[in-house]
């Protein structure tokens, strides 16, 4: 097993430009290292990003956006008081990822890069209309998070690119809500999770963003539901929401839960949140 430890971002990107296909970037390792002794390591080449904390570890707050560097952890966001008011769903999601031992190591960028369909961080980032800043030796490319995934663990990231930062626009948000259903209160992978954000503006109708995890091969937006909500439709039962969601999501049975449970619970959660 090979370990590459670039001293700065430029060196990391140059390494990737030379031979990206063979490299696996690793930040906190909370996904990659699970059941590590059971995984084959011969032939693996790890690109260790952990020493790039200076360049990639900052939380930047401006008037228009918040930028999380690629190595910013869940715990750092939880403890950043500025974010509590600006982007409350970040703290909510972060504090329900695993437990303290995972929160201190897991990164938001890692959550995006790993592409788990149940990603809690991605769910709220996407609801906030976050953008992913992809860096490479050839320069930066910015992609909206909700176009980042093309399939199960398939993304638009080229092998020679690294997530450098996550940019979250600051808007006037009248509704911000996140709910995670796991098998227990903490230390649980999501069975189903949802975030809803309503962006208000004085000169345009409210725009809704509804994101859900564990109901598609990747975290997704419920665009049909968003349109219905934007049109002002009032739902009078969870079943009505379910009928609209059926066009947006396709949950499956797996080791953690069932398709029926996921679809039913998603509709009920959304219904009660809107009704409440």
């Amino acid at each position: 097993m090979n370990i590459l430890q670039p001293r700065d971002l430029k060196e990391a990107l140059d390494m990737l430009a030379a031979d990206a296909e063979s490299m696996t970037p690793i930040a906190g390792g909370t996904d990659l290292m699970v059941s590590w002794p059971h995984k084959p390591h011969d032939g693996l080449c790890l690109l260790d990003l952990s020493s790039l904390k200076e360049e990639l570890g900052s939380i930047v707050v401006t008037d228009d956006y918040v930028e999380l560097g690629a190595l910013v952890t869940y715990w750092e966001v939880i403890r950043d008081e500025r974010l509590a008011d600006l982007l409350p769903l970040l703290r909510e999601a972060a504090s329900q990822v695993g437990a303290i031992q995972i929160q201190t190591r897991g990164t938001w960028a890692g959550n995006i890069a790993h592409g788990s369909p149940g990603a809690d961080g991605v769910t709220v980032l996407m609801a906030y209309d976050a953008e992913v800043v992809l860096a490479s030796a050839a320069g930066d490319v910015v992609t909206p998070l909700d176009s980042y995934y093309t399939g199960y663990k398939l993304t638009v990231r080229r092998p020679d690119q690294l997530i450098r930062a996550i940019r979250i626009p600051l808007r006037s948000r009248g509704v911000q809500w996140f709910h995670k259903v796991g098998a227990r209160t903490a230390q649980a992978i999501s069975k189903v999770g949802v975030a809803m954000v309503r962006e208000d503006s004085s000169d345009a109708p409210a725009a809704w963003r509804v994101t859900a995890n564990s109901v598609m091969p990747y975290v997704c937006r419920g665009r049909n539901l968003e349109q219905e909500l934007a049109s002002g439709r009032i739902f009078s039962s969870p079943e009505e929401i379910r009928r609209v969601l059926d066009a947006d999501v396709a949950p499956i049975d797996d080791i953690r839960s069932t398709a029926e449970y996921r679809a039913t619970v998603l509709s009920r959660l959304i219904y009660m949140q809107l009704a409440g």
Binding site: A183, R184, Q187, I189, I255
Partner: peptide, 11 residues
Amino acid sequence: MTNYVIPCCGD
């Protein structure tokens, strides 16, 4: 342990 779930403290 992620798929055989025993109660944690918070439960």
